[in-house]
Design a protein around this nucleic acid. Structure first.
Lengths: 236, 236
DNA sequence: CGCGTTGTGTTCATACTGTTCGCGGCACGC
DNA sequence: GCGTGCCGCGAACAGTATGAACACAACGCG
């Protein structure tokens, strides 16, 4: 794909852990239309690379894949510094932090996507392709009307295309996940979940089993009562 | 509406033309959950008000309705100044400029919506309510997972209901919307809607699906009977 | 050690979903 | 007036998410 590489978007990976950085860089290469153009392991290094870029001393970047937790600063702080000096490069935030306040800050600093670690390649590719669509739109359009702007914004909206195994729906899966997380005792059996969600036990079991397979919940047994022991599912 | 005003989002209108500023302020008041908390006519004035706010000398704001063309600066420049000093207030850009580069800049500076002048109240209200949905989500959620984040972003990035994809008619869409809103149980399935409007199920589904994509209605599943569950659409 | 009891794991009928493709009507060009 | 192309709509067809029914497995108890 020489031609798609020629127009490929250049990505700067910013991530302190070398192994993770390498993994992210490899992920980037796997997504069509993207190319890892640099890796930085600290905030300072990232800033320096971007400054060099600006002054024509180095290749430039289209997008930063930015870890929020860095040894010398935070991604949020780094992003603020960039904006302050007028660098308008787009940013995808990558973080293990599950804090709504960080999300708010990130949005206000103009990050285009927000990825929560750990993530698989599917989730990663989804965010990048969404960004590519957005980029293509604003790059080509010279004059814009409200519809064009709306369409560009909509391109950044990801529709959670994470493919489910046959027989499962996203709708139901969401409900099941929510119910498991909100379980009073911290653990739920298939029978209990069925009652709570007004589903059949068979269906409840199907989804719980899927969540167990994908590592979202843990399986355990609950003894004590007469009869066969119950299998309980507990989030982790 | 005392109670809704108490929780209403406080908006700062920044617009040089006094007549337009007044019009925007009035628009804000008309949208449920919003309140015009201040008006500034220049960039300096806006900055001063926000600084006063920060130092506790004045009421604070949740959102700026920011005109891009100001007598003493541009909205983009103003926004950059805010970010530089760490003010994370959300911004809706309002402009007559139809330039993709400005849109890009605006996005990178974290503007949450982008409105092109001239606009009617419907377009205006759509953007504000979308922001309100986003705000409600990130304000309440303490812990977030990827899906929660995606949903929040999706709220900000709704496509306009005005533009129709190929295969849909304005007239039919209006009929469908009206029917969904007037649903007796509050929720309608594609089959029910088809019967009510004397359309085929296929067509009913096409329109409902469009409304779901644009965030006008919500999708849910209706279980209970044996057989595949029904998908029901519910206005929100 | 058999037996009741309780929940598990599976199979299969079922009704709704999602998609494909052809029809019919409308507007435009010749 | 008459093709001709386009486009929104619906009949028909697989596909599939669910629950009823059923056979079995694990435990307590006599």
């Amino acid at each position: 794909m020489a031609e798609s590489n020629a127009a490929a978007l250049r990505v700067l990976v910013v991530e302190d852990d070398p192994v993770t950085a390498e993994a992210h860089a490899a992920y980037v290469e796997r997504v069509d239309g993207f190319h890892t153009a640099g890796v930085a392991h600290t905030g300072h290094e990232a800033i320096r690379m971007l400054r060099d870029t600006r002054e024509g001393r180095a290749e430039s970047f289209d997008l930063i894949l930015l870890d929020v937790n860095l040894p010398d600063t935070t991604g949020i702080e780094l992003c603020r510094s960039l904006r302050a000096v007028g660098i308008e490069i787009d940013v995808i935030a990558v973080t293990a932090v599950r804090d709504a306040a960080v999300v708010r800050s990130a949005v206000s600093l103009g990050i285009v996507q927000y990825l929560i670690k750990p993530f698989g390649f599917a989730a990663f590719a989804e965010k990048l392709t969404a960004y590519r669509d957005y980029h293509a739109r604003v790059a080509t359009a010279v004059v814009t009307d409200q519809q064009e702007v709306d369409a560009s914004f909509a391109a950044l909206r990801t529709t959670s295309t994470a493919d489910l195994p046959k027989g499962l729906t996203r709708e139901t899966l969401d409900r099941v996940r929510a119910a498991v997380r909100a379980a009073p005792a911290g653990a739920t059996s298939a029978t209990e979940l069925a009652a709570a969600l007004d589903l059949s036990r068979v269906t409840a079991r199907r989804y719980l089993e899927h969540l167990a397979d994908t590592g979202v919940v843990e399986r355990a047994s609950r003894y004590g009562a007469p009869g066969r022991p119950e299998v309980e599912y507990r989030p982790r």
